[in-house]
Amino acid sequence: MTGWPITLPGRVRALPRRVRALPGRVRALPGKLRALPAEQVQRRCAVLAIIAAVLAAALGVTGALLRSDNEALVDAGKTSELTDRLRGPLTQVLSYDYADLDNAHKAARGLFTGAAVRQYDALFGRIRDTAQSKRLIVTTIVRNLGVVSLHGDRAELLGLVDQQIMSGAAQQRSGTAQLRLVAHRDPGGSWKVTELGVL
């Protein structure tokens, strides 16, 4: 120890020796436990168990705080199942053909529930009402559908859609829209749109 610039306390200097002696001490443990009074063993076990429980609780809380609740993309299967499920029907309900309005109606009944039914009517009722007289054909492409948040059976989505409107024979307009959707998964496991709005 002569080369050491500082003098270590005795307990620290004794550490290597104590570590080397550890296996022997562990082997001797059952014997020592038997030799101790039962009450003392119980008390020590209880104290250690309480410390373990407190540590476990602290770790659990830390883990829960660090974990992101948003399952979007983290649960890749659930995320793509959700967007795959909504993309097709959404394309259908936003597309009209004056000669076949039933198609959009049927798709809307299967896709929307709750407030979304009313919101859909408010947004697209006028187009639907004039579709026949103006001979409208609305072609919609859902260009992008992204999951903003996904918590259990509730999701919020953003959809970027392109629409092409043909009125009569030749007139053509095109536009884009950004949609906000809220979807819920019913007990049967299928996703339904409960809120629909234009951003």
Binding site: L55, A56, A57, L59, G60, T62, G63, A64, L66, R67
Partner: peptide, 10 residues
């Protein structure tokens, strides 16, 4: 078990 799952979460 808790330590492992907390590690996974973080």
């Amino acid at each position: 078990v808790f330590a492992f799952s907390a590690w996974q979460d973080a």
